[in-house]
Design a protein around this nucleic acid. Structure first.
Length: 470
RNA sequence: GGGCCUGUGGGCUAGCUUGGUAUACUUGUGGCUUUGGGAGCCAUUGACUCCGGUUCAAAUCCGGACAGGCCCA
């Protein structure tokens, strides 16, 4: 098997395969089958999204998969961005449809005709909704499990507001939501306002959420958008103000996908297999009984008892009672990324402890039987914190500064650069073309850095980040 | 959009040039045995992508379809 350092692509595929997260044998490219293990992890991630949505008073909805062509084409930038990659439903049985239907690539054009009916008064605002559904995009590039697929497990929140100020507050709230979710996944990320030529089709501006893969390429794991009235105008989403005027609503969206899982694999896993953050691991602790012929019943009994106590405390735990040797079980669960392993054998029972081994850093130790629950929770918390810190430290090492473009001939593969950018498209394109790299954007949260534009040399430039993307 | 390559048990693979009985490993199943880092032994299930052509005979040669991979715009 190729290592993480040598060949990221191969390594990633093998890791996904060995951990049994999805079955790629389904006969449509880019449409994989979620296996029970993969789906459990994804559902756990979804549960954090739902938790955050509830905390911020978004309501869950579920819109139809099919969108009539007439609605789909109402916003012209949006359609321009997507019409190369939508799936069409053109027939019903043997008869061609009068109005063709698209499989949603995202749900703006499904939801907004309804929002136009739902939003009537300023009292209806803000309208805050979300859904977790599958969307479809005909990817032409090489597909990759969880990262570039044609049927996407998709979270999208859609909101309507009275004005720009309230809508931008929503974007700020979205950023907090992203932060809470990424914390559970132990994922470092950056928030960058995308360039005008790279923003979401139809958006006023887009905040891209990126994380860094071990090969130094960035992966977008989500995006928040302020739409202004770009959609409310063509879809006629208006409300009546207190003074009786009818004005267009300002809208936002936040989108995240199964790429969150792809990012977890890419960022945390190693050459032995997956490393799951405790928050999303289907089993947080796996207990391996280690016994001899004469004490098998006793050891298994203790294991089950330990599991019972942990379960009662809300920890997801499993006793591996398979008729197999311990070493073989260790390998199995390491591939699957279980964050914490307990070994319980005759020696441990004698000493009144369980032996543990951490998946993230391999550390071993013991927890006293008398402090089993507290001890286990403490170790799981430590794993979570350490995984985030380790990932952060690693990602910071990828960034270089490019103070002046004339002094730098090329940007090596696997590096991310910070440049000064006056903000004009000419300089941006010039930079992208020279280095064959993409400007990811300028920081959403202002950085204390003002200087010269790395391209034209003008003063007052802001920092921008550029990278090659996965 | 243009080009190149590949389809053999669940997985990986030999065989294809030169047509004739399909190979190894792994996995699965049953049994014996075993358990502090991938144990061993015995038995056993399981495949030539599809359609057509050439031929006495096709996994092998030819054509097409479908599926997948790679490269270039």
């Amino acid at each position: 098997m190729p290592t993480k350092e040598q060949d990221f692509g191969e390594w990633y595929n093998e890791t996904v395969d060995k951990a049994d997260l999805c079955d790629k044998r389904y006969p449509i490219k880019g449409m994989n089958v979620w296996t029970p293990y993969g789906w459990k992890i994804m559902s756990q991630i979804d549960s954090f999204l739902r938790r955050e949505m509830e905390a911020t008073e978004h309501d869950e909805v579920c819109f139809p998969l099919l969108i009539p062509e007439s609605e789909f084409k109402k916003e012209k930038d949006h359609i321009k961005g997507f019409d190369e990659e939508v799936y069409w439903v053109t027939h019903a049985g043997l008869n061609p449809l009068d109005i063709r239907l698209v499989l949603r690539p995202t749900s703006e054009t499904a939801m907004y005709p309804m929002f136009s009916l739902w939003v009537r008064s300023h009292q209806d605002l803000p309208l805050k909704t979300f859904q977790i559904v599958n969307t479809f995009r005909y990817e032409t590039k090489q597909t990759r499990a969880f990262m570039r697929v044609r049927e996407i497990h998709f979270f999208e929140s859609h909101t309507c507001h009275v004005d720009q100020e309230d809508a931008e507050k929503q974007v700020a709230e979205d950023v907090e939501i992203v932060d809470a979710v990424c914390k559970e996944l132990c994922l470092p990320y950056s928030l960058l306002i995308r360039t005008d030529w790279d923003k979401f089709p139809g958006a006023y501006y887009t905040v891209g959420i990126d994380t860094v893969m071990p090969n130094g390429r960035t992966l977008q794991i989500g995006s928040a958008h302020y739409y202004s009235t770009n959609f409310s105008k063509p879809y006629n989403i208006t409300y009546e103000t207190e003074s009786g005027e009818h004005v267009y609503a300002h809208q936002t969206t936040l989108g995240m996908t199964e790429r969150l899982l792809g990012a977890v694999i890419g960022v945390h896993a190693d050459d032995t297999g997956l490393k799951l953050p405790p928050a999303i691991a289907p089993q947080q602790i796996v207990i391996i009984p280690i016994f001899k012929k004469d004490n098998a019943d006793q050891v298994i009994g203790v294991c089950r008892d330990v599991a019972k106590q942990l379960k009662a405390a809300g920890i997801r735990v499993k006793v591996d009672e398979r008729n197999d040797r311990p070493g073989s079980k260790f390998f199995d669960w390491e591939i699957k990324g279980v964050p914490l392993r307990f070994e319980i054998g005759g020696k441990d029972i004698e000493n009144g402890v369980v032996t543990f081994a951490r998946r993230d850093n391999g550390e071993k130790g013991t927890i006293g039987m008398d402090s089993l629950v507290e001890g286990s929770k403490m170790v799981l918390d430590m794993i979570s914190k350490d995984m985030l810190e380790a990932a952060k430290a690693k990602q910071q090492g990828f960034v270089d500064d490019v103070p002046c473009m004339d002094a730098v001939d090329s940007i090596p593969e696997g590096r991310i650069v910070r440049l000064g950018w006056c903000g004009c498209p000419e300089c941006g394109h010039k930079f992208e073309d020279k280095y064959d790299i993409k400007i990811l954007g300028t920081p959403y949260k202002a950085e204390n850095w003002v200087g010269k534009c790395s391209v034209c040399g003008k003063d007052g430039a802001k920092p921008a980040y550029a990278a090659r993307t996965l």
